[in-house]
């Protein structure tokens, strides 16, 4: 599926960022081409989720250096909603509950915003209901979810399935899935991964942020990156994830020991 000629979708160069006074990203480099699946691994606090949120345009983080190009365009210049409209999707680690806002209404407004970005006609309430019912099958969700408030009172697994439902509706070009596997039991994990697999195609790309090999058994990555202290310090193929599963992250500390010439 991968070929050198594939189009570059996302190109991150020397990205640095901070939140309040704390520097979190210290120069991230990552290139993602169409058709590729990347896995980003690393300890808690290594900067994985920060990277995801910055790519989606979270206002709490300040980019202090570097560039991000999306299909050749400067991504960092865009508002969060514009990023979604041109096909960037973030599956949140902790999808927020929004009491009172109807899920169906929310999904429809979001889908139409994306369709606008794709120069497609807006869907009216009835057309949309049909579309959404189809997509519900992908994540094996009951239509009663649509009548509830966004994520409110959803279990952990239901929230994650609602995220994948949004991914299915928005048909993004690049999907960043931030620990979509955390808190899922084995059945829910299968549903979510098969959803992601059904939605990937040679024109799209996926960045999976995860701690665990078990997700990568379901969704096979082409590249595995290890992040530490705000940088990607190692890149390999899926074997790297298996190694990590066996050896953990302790080698990072060893590698970080001062070398002889530092003395």
């Amino acid at each position: 599926m991968i070929s050198k000629d594939s189009e570059i979708i996302l190109e991150i160069k020397n990205l640095q960022a901070r939140v309040e006074d704390q520097s979190i990203l210290q120069g991230v480099n990552l290139t993602i081409r169409s058709g590729e699946i990347h896995a980003l691994m690393g300890r808690n606090g290594s900067g994985k989720s920060t990277l995801a949120k910055i790519l989606a345009g979270h206002p709490s983080y300040t980019v202090t250096g570097g560039t991000v190009l999306y299909c050749g365009k400067d991504l960092l210049d865009l508002d969060p909603e514009e990023r979604s409209r041109i096909g960037l999707f973030l599956g949140f680690q902790y999808p927020i509950e929004i009491p009172g806002v109807n899920n169906l209404e929310f999904l429809r407004v979001a889908t139409n915003a994306r369709r606008q970005g794709l120069n497609k006609e807006e869907l009216d309430v009835f057309e949309f209901e049909e579309v959404v019912r189809e997509k519900l099958k992908i994540v094996q969700m009951d239509s009663s979810f649509l009548d509830r408030s966004v994520n409110e009172g959803f279990s952990g697994g239901e929230k994650k399935r609602n995220e994948i439902l949004q991914m299915a509706l928005l048909e993004p070009t690049v999907s960043i899935l931030d620990e979509t596997d955390s808190g899922l039991d084995i059945d829910a994990l299968r549903i979510v991964s098969s959803g992601v697999n059904q939605l990937s195609n040679p024109k799209t790309a996926t960045l999976l942020i995860t701690h665990y090999q078990r997700l990568l058994n379901e969704i096979k990555p082409d590249f595995v990156h290890v992040m530490s202290a705000g940088r990607i310090i190692k890149t390999g193929d899926k074997e790297l994830a298996l190694d990590l599963e066996k050896t953990g992250y302790d080698w990072i500390d060893k590698d970080a020991q001062p070398k002889g010439n530092d003395l």
Binding site: G57, H58, S60, E81, S84, L90, I98, P99, G100, F106
Partner: peptide, 29 residues
């Protein structure tokens, strides 16, 4: 809530629309 506004914006909804939806939801409850 900034986090709620961001969630909606990350789904392609403008800040104005997001505010409307959130205020509506706030009242609807």
């Amino acid at each position: 809530q900034q986090e709620e506004v961001f969630y909606l914006r990350s789904r392609g909804i403008t800040s104005n629309q997001a505010a409307k939806l959130l205020l509506d939801g706030y009242c609807q409850e």
